[in-house]
């Protein structure tokens, strides 16, 4: 059996090489930067008073840049399942599934490679956000790292779950790109959740990303959090564990299902 790390390493490097060799693929990574530019254009029309009362900061640029830095990772998780879809259509996934290769780490590697590929725009956006904020980076680096790790963990599990959907339904998940953008908005990546009507806020509280963005904004801009900071960390941690279990079980069930129905794209 190929070790899980080996599968992860080989497929991640393979995906990254593909990005480098196929320049058009890089566009998907640069998308968040384009969204930021659009948001910068929109900032003047936002009501800063409302924004301040909801978040505790007037620094809309940093707020949006920080949310965008992390939401770009989520987009890449969706992108990972899209890339898996094309490999399924071409029969590569079927071949891999006939091999002694860990399915879980194979699927995770699609997401990891996309996350690694997304590090550059992430760093650019986060640096912009940190540069514009007035908070000392040193005092907030630990909460930022903890939140980032938990968020990336959650994103990876979502990527596995999306990949399972691809394998079961044998259809692309392009529609998830649109849905994910809406989810990021509701979760408060770009606008504070407290600005939304109550019913939308309740939806937001059911999303793990809401707490992640809240904590990220708190770490970078010292914003007001929805719930106490430690409560939000616990919620994020629980989400991470629950999604890991769901992803693992989904994969088991998916493999069982595709072994009954066939994996080949029809």
């Amino acid at each position: 059996m190929t070790s899980a790390l080996n599968v992860l390493y080989l497929n991640t490097v393979r995906e990254l090489k593909t990005y480098i060799r196929y320049k058009a693929g890089l566009m998907s990574i640069l998308m968040p930067v384009l969204i930021l530019i659009i948001m910068i254009i929109l900032i003047p029309i936002l009501d800063t008073d409302v924004f301040f009362s909801a978040s505790g900061t007037e620094n809309i640029f940093s707020f949006v840049a920080a949310g965008l830095a992390f939401s770009s990772f989520y987009e890449l998780a969706v992108n990972a399942s899209t890339r898996l879809y094309s490999d399924m259509v071409y029969g590569t996934v079927e071949y891999i599934f006939s091999q002694p290769v860990s399915r879980y780490w194979y699927l995770v590697s699609y997401c990891i490679s996309n996350v690694v590929a997304g590090v550059v725009p992430f760093c650019v956006l986060l640096s912009l956000s940190a540069f514009q904020s007035e908070i000392s980076a040193a005092q907030n680096i630990l909460p930022l790292i903890v939140t980032s790790v938990l968020l990336v963990g959650i994103i990876i599990q979502f990527s596995v779950i999306f990949s399972c959907l691809v394998l079961i339904f044998k259809v692309g998940v392009g529609w998830l790109f649109g849905a994910s953008t809406i989810i990021q908005v509701i979760a408060g990546a770009y606008i504070p959740v407290k600005v939304f009507p109550m019913w939308l806020q309740y939806i937001a509280y059911g999303l793990p990303f809401t707490y992640a963005y809240d904590l990220i904004h708190y770490s970078l801009l010292n914003t007001k959090t929805i719930f106490p900071v430690y409560t939000e960390w616990v919620v994020l941690f629980v989400w991470c564990i629950v999604l890991s279990v769901v992803a693992f079980v989904s994969l088991q069930k998916t493999e069982d299902y595709v072994k009954k129905q066939g994996l080949h794209y029809i």
Partner: peptide, 12 residues
Amino acid sequence: GQDTERSGYLRF
């Protein structure tokens, strides 16, 4: 497998 002549990675 059958119909797998495309199952290699194109940019490799």
